[in-house]
Simulated assay, not measured.
Amino acid sequence: MLLYRIAPYSSAAADSSQPGHPSYLHKPAQGYGRVDNAGIYDVWYLSRTEAGAVGEVFARYTEWQEVMFDFRAIAGARYALHTYSVHDDCKIIDLDDAQALVDVGLRPTQVVTRNRTVTQRWAQKLYNQTTMTGMAWDGVQWWSRHHSDWPVLGLWRTAPTYVRTSELSMAHSAVVDAAGTLNRRTK
């Protein structure tokens, strides 16, 4: 299955240990996200849709313009759309499935709350839990708070395999789609 994320890209980043590389995971930032549990596992945040990946990062802006793709913390870097793959049999629990919520004892409000203490607690519980087959969950999926049709996920046991990078612009189809879905003005 293909998954997407928006992250800084720099052609000068030679390998995954360098910021700006598509496979770089910013570990100092681990601990602030919805399903983070720093010191226990690292998380790859991804989207099942290209537009969802764009929307997750840029939804906070009311007007979208080319300059928002600049990433000034790394010389010459810009945000880009990175595509990754994971095996189709990757064990991802879908919290948009009512039965899955019942099975793990969660309410929808606990999934969407912005209270990181709550979401990180249930994420650690899921990380420690095993599936009916005795296998541990590789990650968790829920719906984007920006648009419910955008499934987003966090992978903690399976690192995605890098496939390709697309440069972002206001004309990129994922940007156009996300801007339209979120009703954002574009320049």
Rank of each mutant, 00 (worst) to 15 (best):
G55P: 07
G55H: 05
G55S: 10
G55C: 06
E56Y: 06
E56P: 05
E56W: 05
V57I: 13
V57T: 15
F58G: 04
F58L: 06
F58N: 01
A59I: 00
A59H: 15
R60Q: 14
R60I: 11
Y61A: 12
Y61L: 14
Y61S: 10
Y61C: 03
Y61P: 00
T62I: 03
T62K: 10
T62W: 01
T62G: 09
E63F: 03
E63S: 13
E63K: 14
E63V: 15
W64C: 03
W64Q: 03
W64Y: 03
Q65Y: 12
E66P: 01
E66V: 00
E66L: 02
V67F: 08
V67C: 07
M68L: 15
F69Y: 05
F69L: 06
F69R: 07
D70G: 02
F71M: 03
F71V: 07
F71Y: 15
R72S: 11
R72G: 02
R72D: 06
R72V: 09
R72C: 03
I74N: 05
I74W: 06
I74S: 04
I74M: 07
I74G: 08
I74F: 06
A75Q: 13
A75R: 13
A75V: 10
A75C: 01
G76R: 08
G76S: 08
G76Q: 11
G76N: 12
A77K: 06
A77E: 04
R78E: 02
R78A: 04
R78P: 01
R78Q: 10
R78C: 03
Y79H: 15
A80K: 03
A80E: 02
L81M: 11
L81W: 10
L81S: 09
L81V: 06
T83R: 10
T83N: 01
T83P: 01
T83E: 13
Y84D: 02
S85I: 04
S85Y: 01
S85K: 12
S85N: 05
V86A: 05
V86M: 09
V86T: 11
V86P: 08
H87M: 08
H87L: 13
H87K: 15
H87N: 12
D88I: 04
D88A: 13
D88T: 12
D88Q: 14
D89E: 14
D89L: 09
D89H: 11
C90A: 12
C90T: 15
C90Y: 02
K91H: 12
K91D: 11
K91M: 07
K91N: 14
K91P: 00
I92N: 09
I92C: 06
I92V: 15
I93A: 01
I93M: 04
D94E: 06
L95P: 01
L95I: 09
L95R: 08
D96E: 13
D96P: 00
D97N: 15
D97W: 07
A98N: 11
A98H: 12
Q99L: 14
Q99T: 13
Q99N: 05
A100H: 11
A100D: 09
A100S: 15
V102P: 00
V102M: 12
